[in-house]
């Protein structure tokens, strides 16, 4: 019966659309002055910004050409890459990955409660505002800065790197997690609430099943980028292959530097590919 009604109303709308299209349009719509003015303004702002930043960024494109002889010599030093110590590089690369694993794992564990506490559809404003600001500050400070601080606090080595990734990634993941939570359907949550469940149970059974695939995907993505970050943490003494890399660059051992870089490129690409596969599986 319902469908019959929908059908008749469908006919009605069809009729009206026919009558409205029967007069053929003869003119283009007038040019929108306001719109073209604002797009002009936008371009002016973008160009202005670039010009303003030119000096501060010390832009000297000519230097690339003037010193081209040096550049060739410099590049020459990288070839052929020297893999004599490859066992050590691979070992350090494993440590780098292990730093990323622990840093990511700890931050996932923390991002679950923090992510929920950042979501405006779950908690009141006096909870999510302060928690969001805290997460902002975790995120605003680069993992390298945290790494330097933790090297001072817990000493040189991978653990400082783990702590640095943990804090920074918690700030990132909590925000991503809460965005997923804010996009859920409220109906299933209400369905759980209606059974007399408590607030925690609403989250466990109403919210988390809905966001889990996205959360997994975000976590894997962050793991990929944490491996990349972890490759440089060693520069400030927080362990992993970055330490080796920094020693070689500082000592002008470019052939060895090239070998380390190739190891990093291969492992990061392999991990990215594997994690992308996994992400496709969950979503």
């Amino acid at each position: 019966m319902r469908s019959l009604f929908a059908f008749t109303s469908g006919i009605r709308t069809m009729n009206s659309s026919i009558s409205s299209t029967s007069s053929v349009a003869t003119e283009l719509p007038p040019r929108d002055l306001k719109r073209s003015a604002s797009s002009f303004l936008l371009w002016a702002i973008i160009l202005g910004l670039l010009a303003w930043s030119w000096e501060g960024a010390d832009m000297r494109p000519m230097a690339l050409f003037e010193n081209s002889g040096n550049m060739v010599d410099f590049a020459d030093g990288f070839f052929p890459p020297d893999f004599l110590m490859w066992k050590m590089y691979v070992e350090e690369m494993w440590i780098t990955i292990q730093i990323a694993i622990w840093g990511t794992a700890l931050s996932i564990v923390c991002s679950i409660p923090f992510g929920i506490l950042c979501s405006e559809n779950i908690v009141p404003v006096w909870v999510y505002q302060p928690v969001r600001r805290l997460m902002d500050s975790f995120r605003a400070i680069n993992e390298m800065v945290f790494a330097m601080l933790f090297v001072v606090a817990v000493g040189l080595g991978p653990f400082a790197g783990v702590l640095a990734l943990w804090i920074h990634t918690t700030g990132v993941l909590a925000k991503l997690f809460s965005e997923a939570v804010e996009a859920i359907d409220p109906e299933p949550v209400e369905g759980i609430r209606a059974t007399g469940a408590n607030a925690l149970q609403e989250v466990i059974f109403g919210v988390i099943p809905q966001v889990l695939p996205l959360w997994i995907s975000y976590s894997l993505y962050r793991f990929e980028s944490n491996v990349r970050s972890a490759t440089v943490l060693g520069i400030v003494g927080a362990g992993g292959i970055g330490m080796v890399l920094w020693e070689y660059i500082r000592g002008f051992y470019y052939a060895e530097t090239a070998a380390v870089m190739i190891i990093i490129i291969i492992s990061v690409s392999l991990l990215d590919m594997a994690s992308q596969r996994l992400r496709k599986l969950v979503t």
């Binding site: 109906e187 299933p188 209400e190 369905g191 209606a194 408590n198 059974f205 099943p209 809905q210």
Partner: peptide, 19 residues
């Protein structure tokens, strides 16, 4: 919340957790 345990609600949009 205690009274709610006595009340079952069935919604138009089913309100099951689909996963």
């Amino acid at each position: 919340r205690k009274v709610r345990t006595e009340i079952g609600v069935v919604f138009q949009q089913f309100n099951l957790v689909s996963r």
